[in-house]
Structure formats: structure tokens, C-alpha cells
């Protein structure tokens, strides 16, 4: 970060989860336009609990669990000098004075940035919490330069998102049953499909839902034919009908990983693996599937519904 002089981490604990984030990208480096490095920046941490990241922060705002949306919506109003209800603000765990101070600092920043973590995007309100950050940041640009960036989970989540977008037009929650891509998170997203039991098979690549998803989803995975491609034995591979061991991406398989800011980095293998790469396995499966007769009838040309 060569420019940011005002940094907010919201709902994340980068000190533990993304340890390189502070030192490499955001906080400590002497940026091209922030020559004093850490001294030239203000860092605000917003979270529901004190984490090791608090030590790195200049200001820590402890918000009550599940109140992020309320806080951000209040900030949006304050940025536009609109009135808010003081007593209801206090229910968020933060005072009106604290939020007014934050708005003042945001407007006075030369270049502000908000990193938002899964503590925001995966808690009550979910996508609306992320939408709230985006809206706030867009509106702050009427006063100064402000940007935001999600802090994604582990693995190449961003890469999957990016590739889905250029191949299907949508980032996730895509269904291809009708022969063309459709998008509806909540209807087609993996966890919702599994919880409702809407799918009758699963192919899992580069993820361990058996360790993270709610129990009904895991039960469904165990019920249906589940195929897992993974270098390691995982919770999911244990409940799967088939586990194909593959070469570990980045260690013994080449590829591309997309950083959280969607910048692609090449992965260069350092070890040889006796196992095939995910790509090789998927290509082989695809060859076999392709040899089967087309699953859409030849008469199926028109698109009846979007």
C-alpha cells in the first residue's frame, strides 16, 4: 500500500489469519507516498472481541455481535450529516461520539481503505453487511479517496470466483442444469443446496466442507455419492464414496492463485509428486463424460426462462 494513510480492518483478525497483510501490504511498509511507514498511517480495528490484532491498532472499536450492519448504516447517515437516534446507536456497543469521530477521520483521510473479513461477511446480515461496506465506501468518495477489499478465507477462493465470472458471467451460486449459467445465491449456493438436499451427487475440489458446513449439509454429503479430490485426508474425504489423491497445488503442482485483490500470481512447483494434478484428473473425468451422449435433447434450442 503506497498510499493509504487511514486503514480500517472490520470483522477480521489479520494478525492471526493473514499475518503477512500488516507487514507486507498495509501497515508497516514505507509506501511510496507514505514514506514514514507505520507512523504515517492510522489504523482502526472494528471487531466483536479483542484479538491479537488490537495491539497493532491505533483505535479499537468493539461492536456488539450482530450489530455491524446497524453501525455501518449509521455511518452512512452521519457521512451525509443526517440525524440518527442516539439511544439506538448505543445498542450497538459504540457511542454516537465514537462514530462521529470515526466519520471525521474517514473524511479527513487522504486515502482510506477498509478491509472487511469474514467476521463481517459471514455473520448475521451476510451479503448485506458486505453491501453496507461497499455503499459506505462509494459514498465516502464524494469527500476523499476511499476503497475497500474483502479478506477472503483460505485457499484460492478468489481464483474460483474470478474464473467462474469469465466462464459463466457469475461469481458463485451458479447452476448449469438448463444448459446455460443461472445465478441465485441462496438457491444454488453449495451450502443451501446441501442443506435442502437438492443435489444427488457432489464433486468437491480444493475445499473441506465436512469441516466447516452445518451438520445437515454434511449428512447429505454422506448420503449421496460424493467424490473428493484432495492431496490430504480430510473430514470430507472420510465421508466421501471416492477420494482421489492429487498433487498439492503450489507445492508439487503448477497453477495460478488469485490474491484477495484479484491479482494473479503464478505457482511454481518445488517438489515432484507421484499423484496427478487436480487439472489432470478433471480432464480425464471430462473426457469420459464427453464421450457419453449429449444430455440435452437436440430439440432443446430455445431458452424458455432466464
Amino acid at each position: 500500500m503506497n498510499r493509504a494513510d487511514f486503514i480500517i480492518y472490520w470483522g477480521g483478525n489479520p494478525a492471526d489469519c493473514h499475518p503477512r497483510h500488516f507487514t507486507k501490504y498495509t501497515l508497516t511498509p514505507k509506501g511510496k507516498h507514505v514514506p514514514m511507514g507505520r507512523k504515517g498511517r492510522t489504523m482502526v480495528l472494528v471487531d466483536v472481541r479483542e484479538t491479537p490484532s488490537v495491539r497493532a491498532a491505533d483505535i479499537f472499536l468493539q461492536v456488539r455481535p450482530g450489530k455491524d450492519f446497524e453501525v455501518i448504516t449509521t455511518l452512512r447517515a452521519l457521512v451525509k450529516n443526517q440525524p440518527v437516534d442516539q439511544a439506538r446507536v448505543a445498542e450497538t456497543g459504540l457511542t454516537l461520539a465514537q462514530l462521529q469521530d470515526l466519520v471525521g477521520r474517514m473524511k479527513n483521510a487522504r486515502f482510506g481503505v477498509i478491509f472487511f473479513g469474514m467476521g463481517l461477511s459471514m455473520t448475521r446480515g451476510k451479503h448485506m453487511n458486505s453491501a453496507a461496506v461497499l455503499a459506505l465506501v462509494a459514498e465516502l468518495n464524494a469527500f476523499t479517496k476511499f476503497v475497500c477489499m474483502p479478506m477472503r478465507g483460505h485457499g484460492n477462493v478468489t481464483g474460483a470466483d474470478v474464473v467462474m465470472r469469465w466462464t459463466t458471467g457469475f461469481p458463485f451460486g451458479v447452476n448449469l442444469c438448463r444448459g446455460y449459467p443461472r445465478f441465485n445465491p441462496g438457491e444454488f449456493s453449495t451450502v443451501d443446496l446441501l442443506v435442502r438436499g437438492d443435489n444427488d451427487a457432489a464433486l468437491i475440489l480444493g475445499a473441506d466442507p465436512g469441516a466447516t458446513m452445518p451438520q445437515p449439509a454434511i449428512d447429505h454429503l454422506a448420503r449421496i455419492p460424493t467424490i473428493v479430490l484432495d492431496p490430504k485426508v480430510t473430514r470430507t474425504s472420510r465421508l466421501a464414496r471416492v477420494h482421489i489423491t492429487t498433487a498439492a497445488m503450489g507445492i508439487s503442482a503448477p497453477g495460478t492463485v488469485y490474491r484477495m485483490d484479484e491479482i494473479p500470481l503464478p505457482l511454481r512447483p518445488i517438489l515432484q509428486s507421484p499423484y496427478p494434478t487436480d487439472e489432470v484428473v478433471i480432464r480425464r473425468i471430462h473426457e469420459q463424460v464427453k464421450a457419453k451422449p449429449a444430455w440435452l435433447p437436440a430439440s432443446f434450442k430455445k431458452v424458455p426462462c432466464a
Binding site: 448449469l176 444448459g179 446455460y180 449459467p181 464427453k290 449429449a294 440435452l296 432443446f300 434450442k301 431458452v303
Partner: peptide, 8 residues
């Protein structure tokens, strides 16, 4: 629409 020749 996906077909043997075309990608969706």
C-alpha cells in the same frame, strides 16, 4: 446453450 460443440 451447452452442446457438444459449444460451451455454455
Amino acid at each position: 446453450i451447452h452442446s457438444p460443440e459449444l460451451r455454455a
